[in-house]
Design a protein around this nucleic acid. Structure first.
Lengths: 111, 111
DNA sequence: AAAATACATCGTAATATTGCAATGTACTTA
DNA sequence: TAAGTACATTGCAATATTACGATGTATTTT
């Protein structure tokens, strides 16, 4: 099959999974970190930074945009990409809601 | 292709992506949440809880195990699964290291 | 020991992802 | 306006994921 039965799960589970999927590729993590480092916005010279083809970077950027974690603004013939701060915090909180459901580690407490 | 060029990225990026990939399916998020709710360890009656076949659940459990986020102990003919507290915290910190690289949202600050 | 139970693994079909060359679109400069 | 630049989209090949029936393995019960 290869098709996820998303109707079996609740909205939170589907949403978290969707965002996680976007983070589930090192190139996309690298893109995010690049945008973080250059705390000003940066355009698509990511092609130089990472060693991937222009079409590939463009595709990754689209996926990052699809969950709103980054946004792009047209700036002449170039496009400025940057983190979307509001969405960033939303996503951060979404993950921490899950992570905080478990108390901090007490080694050996488990089965 | 379909094969990730993981040699282009650093270890942190590859590791985070690997963990994110495991969280990138609602069934696996659901399994984790089920293990969290029943704060004692629970066995594989996840098949009942989620509406997936036994083989499918087993496969998801294996992926969760592969990054160490859960662990299973043989208990007679059954197997008890539970969160690995140490690894849980590690993963939580790994994500927050990324998330905390950006200050909390200041709407409209972006491009 | 035979049957039953619980889970893992294998094999396979359907679908999704990754990567890139080629091409399209929009702006810019000569 | 033509050529150049920056990025998106399309189309495709290689590979990965998802789901599950069938089967294997270990333990438990009868």
């Amino acid at each position: 099959m290869g098709v996820t039965k998303s109707d079996l799960f609740n909205e939170m589970q589907n949403e978290l999974a969707t965002v996680a999927k976007v983070l589930a590729h090192p190139a996309r993590v690298a893109i995010i970190q690049h945008l973080l480092k250059s705390n000003a916005c940066i355009n698509g010279d990511l092609v130089q930074e990472l060693g991937l083809a222009q079409a590939t970077i463009s595709q990754h950027l689209r996926e990052l945009k699809s969950v709103g974690i980054i946004q792009g603004t047209i700036e002449g013939s170039r496009i400025s990409y940057c983190i979307n701060p509001v969405r960033w915090t939303e996503i951060k909180n979404q993950f921490n809601e899950l992570f905080d459901q478990y108390p901090t580690a007490i080694p050996g407490e488990c089965c």
